[in-house]
Every structure is written in structure tokens, then in C-alpha cells.
């Protein structure tokens, strides 16, 4: 981060830890992208690749944990070194979860590809693109220790929550229209939820970056726009006039 340690191997080990986290982030980013594309293009082969590659994400997490524990034990880090090592542990956990969600999206894309397409599937790539942007910006700000960029990306999670809430309503409406939509729409609902959760882990990472750079936890609570917890869509039979609101 700043100038070199007197003990050069210490700097090299920290650098290696940083590289591992960046590589893991890059891999998870690619996993999310591929999973969303597998949904959109109904591509089973790509879905299987994503599912298979999740092991590599987990492998990175183990490697980062081991390296961080080794540094804690052998170097007794202090100050920003300590914050950075703790951050690596936390960020690796968040990235691992992001990887899991990507794998789950890929899994759900397989049954989805065997069912007739439903219209709300069109909204998934839009949500996917936004998630990818947020994840990318947060991971870029990790490499550059750019806390302003991290916090800006964190604020965009609201847009994601808005998209999720509207997709949630759209899916409920579709399920009510035709019970045959229930299976694909439920898969899409979980996919959307997974994307929304990926956004939450990206905001965690942004907050960890703030802690490393500034030295204190971020105190302002991020405003949440996920209203799906409170969403109610009335079935058409009770409200014949409105039906679905596209």
C-alpha cells in the first residue's frame, strides 16, 4: 500500500495475498457473467462449465485463508497491514458466496432451458449486467484502494434492489396468469434473488475496502430499496380489471 517493509519477504507475501484476492474476484466476475449468459442463451454446456468452475473459486478461498492465517501467525501484523489481511479473509468469503450464487444461477438455467421461454426471462440479463458492473467496480476499487469508487458502486446496489422488486412483481403476475408458468418463473425468481444477493456481497466488499483505507468501519447505513419482502400482487380473479401490469 505505501512504501516497502524493512523485511522484504513480508511485502512480497502481502502482495501475493492481494494478487490471490484479485484473481479470485476476476474468476467470480467471469462466473457471474457466464451464468447470466447461460440463462439468456439457454446454453446448457456453458451452465455446466460454470458449475464445474465453482470448485476453483472455493480453492482460491482456501488458499487465501491459509495465506492470511500464515501472515497473522508469522508477522503479527499491525496497522494497515492488519486491516488488509483481515480484509482479504472477509473479501474472500464474500467472493466465495458470489461464486456460489453464480453456480446456482447456472444450475437453474438448465431446467429453465428445457421449459418454454417466459417473458420475464428478458429482464434477467438487465439485472445481470448491473450486478456485473457493481461487482467489477468494487473489485477494481480493491486493486486500486479507491474508496470513493467503492462507495459509489455500493450506492448503485439500490438500482439493483429496484430491478429485483419489479421483477419479483412481474414473476408473481405471470404465475397467476397461467399455472404452467410457475416452474420457470420460480427458477427465475431464485435467479433474480441470487443476483440481488450478489449485489449485497459486493456492497460488503465495498465496506471492507472502506475499513482498510480509512481505518474505521463505514457508519452510514445503506438505504435499502428491496421492497419485495412487502410485495403483494392480487390474483386476477379478485381484481379482473387490472390483471397483469406489464
Amino acid at each position: 500500500m505505501s512504501n516497502e517493509h524493512i523485511v522484504r519477504s513480508y511485502s512480497l507475501e502481502l502482495e501475493r495475498l492481494r494478487t490471490l484476492v484479485s484473481q479470485m474476484g476476476g474468476l467470480a466476475e467471469a462466473q457471474v457473467e457466464a451464468a447470466v449468459s447461460a440463462v439468456f442463451r439457454r446454453d446448457v454446456e456453458q451452465a455446466n462449465q460454470v458449475i464445474g468452475a465453482d470448485q476453483r473459486v472455493d480453492g482460491y478461498e482456501r488458499e487465501i485463508d491459509a495465506e492470511a492465517i500464515r501472515l497473522l501467525a508469522l508477522r503479527q501484523p499491525m496497522g494497515l497491514d492488519l486491516r488488509e489481511i483481515i480484509a482479504a479473509l472477509k473479501i474472500a468469503t464474500d467472493i466465495e458466496r458470489i461464486g456460489d450464487y453464480a453456480a446456482n444461477i447456472a444450475k437453474r438455467s438448465i431446467p429453465l432451458s428445457q421449459l418454454p421461454p417466459v417473458r420475464p426471462a428478458q429482464s434477467v440479463p438487465r439485472m445481470g449486467r448491473l450486478v456485473q458492473q457493481i461487482v467489477k467496480e468494487v473489485l477494481d476499487s480493491y486493486t486500486a484502494w479507491d474508496v470513493t469508487k467503492a462507495i459509489a458502486a455500493r450506492a448503485r446496489d439500490n438500482e439493483l434492489d429496484d430491478l429485483y422488486t419489479s421483477l419479483f412483481r412481474e414473476l408473481l403476475t405471470h404465475m397467476m396468469e397461467d399455472p404452467r408458468n410457475i416452474t420457470p418463473c420460480t427458477h427465475l425468481l431464485f435467479i433474480a434473488k441470487n443476483l440481488e444477493r450478489i449485489g449485497d456481497h459486493a456492497t460488503n466488499i465495498a465496506e471492507t475496502i472502506h475499513y482498510v483505507v480509512v481505518g474505521t468501519p463505514i457508519t452510514d447505513a445503506r438505504p435499502k430499496n428491496d421492497d419485495s419482502n412487502f410485495a403483494v400482487v392480487t390474483p386476477p380473479s379478485e381484481q379482473p380489471a387490472s390483471g397483469d401490469n406489464k
Binding site: S2, N3, G79
Partner: peptide, 19 residues
């Protein structure tokens, strides 16, 4: 002081970067 020192010199000393 050991997690978030304010001064650069303190940071350098506690993290082993003191020149």
C-alpha cells in the same frame, strides 16, 4: 494505535516500514 494510527511515522514503525 495498533489498528489505525493517525500519523504516518507511527504507521511506518508499527508495520515495520520505518526507514
Amino acid at each position: 494505535i495498533f489498528t489505525n494510527p493517525r500519523d504516518e511515522r507511527t504507521q511506518g514503525y508499527i508495520t515495520g516500514r520505518y526507514g
